[in-house]
Design a protein around this nucleic acid. Sequence first.
RNA 1: CGGGAGAUGGCAGAGCGGUUGAAUGCACUGGUCUUGAAAACCAGCGAGGGUCAUACCUCCGGGAGUUCGAAUCUCCCUCUCCCGGCCA
Length: 414
Amino acid sequence: MIDLKALQNDFDSIASKLQKKNVDSELLSALKEQALALKTQKAVLEKLQAEQNAKSKLFPQYQKEGKDIASLKAELAENKQAIAIEQDKARELEAALSDIALNVPNIPDSDVPAGLDEDDNIEIKKVLDIPTFSFTPKEHWDFEELDFIDFERGVKLSKSRFCVLKNDAARIERALINYMLDFNRARGFAEVSVPYIVNRDSLMATGQLPKFEDDLFKIEGEELFLIPTAEVPLTNLYRDEILKEEELPIMMTSFTACFRKEAGSAGRDTRGMIRQHQFGKVELVSITKPQDSDKIFQEMVACASDLLASLGLAHRQVLLCGGDLGFGAAKTIDLEVWLPGQNRYREISSVSNTRDFQARRALIRYKDGKKNVLVNTLNGSSLAVGRCLIAIIENYQKEDGTIAVPEVLKPYLS
RNA sequence: CGGGAGAUGGCAGAGCGGUUGAAUGCACUGGUCUUGAAAACCAGCGAGGGUCAUACCUCCGGGAGUUCGAAUCUCCCUCUCCCGGCCA
């Protein structure tokens, strides 16, 4: 959630920043007006409440002194009605306010480029040269003879966009997970294992709800959902907590399966395992003081990028433009790995700084002296395991149709 | 899934329906003392809103109700713990 106080004081600057994310300034005016209306209404209500409280306290005294309490009683009964009416008004305003506020995306950082979609993203760095092949490299689904990925049976078990990994593909996946977790741990991220099912409050806090319920798998009959990313449980670990300054920064890494309905992606990447309803991902999440989050952000990008490089995978770093930025992100850098079969770069990791957007929703704060200050939360894929496997298959393929293995994974495959 | 107990401040743990945002202990912070530390003693110490700052309002799991007044009474929900069953 954006800072409503700041919105009232700094309307123009926030509105212009949010234009980069294509947020209608009328919506923001409405939000500002709602906030003001609520404040006004609360003043009315609180005045009545103060009166009620003060006069109620007179009763014991009156009784002791043997004064008449009947008229006081009647007066307060009347005031009580008035309070109920104003209370209802305040609640309505509150509901209307949070209806808007929870659906307004985060404010982009000032160095986020303007732009509509991914075509306007800015490449900021290339790492490793694109490999050359003496033959035409195949796409990752063209290795039937290796009995690696079974798409048909995945569909039989579940539905489309599920698949089964077998033999060396399954082993490499497991090796990758272990390798990534070890790599991240060496960079200072504490390993955590979390639930794959979370409640509504958790998804509200990280921003998947209320707006994106259609993208989530919900457990029937329960107010519980399959996680779309480990970012949700990891960040929510500290929901409603006030941290000590010396606990920060908190840096965590976790492997989980992730579940996404991908409701809006019909027709995209229907072939292969680029876009699945279930995929493995090793995630990084950090919780920092506001003044440290830029530094940690860079560390997280470097961690993911170095990890890819250590696997010998050519990739580039891309700074997302406003239009391509996610709902909760103030700034995002994507890592795109080179896929020789597709002859293009594809997203394999995404690191975002949400500033205090999630912290405000999740009420994660730390004690700065006497004051409680909202933390900054950051998240990033270390790497999407499935896509990483694809990248290895395509980049390490040999002319005879077999696959080599990245040097660093060998210890994990013995 | 069946039976029982409970939900209060960072933790532990009190709280006749009335000036209790809440005793007490621990933890924490500041001070005295000490060469330093410990101990002891003194003081402070929940959160949100609101205000220049006060006032003031809200919050004792969540919601509804009784009452002039509820942490305290009633109802519903949720969650936690213990016992039994089932189970990786």
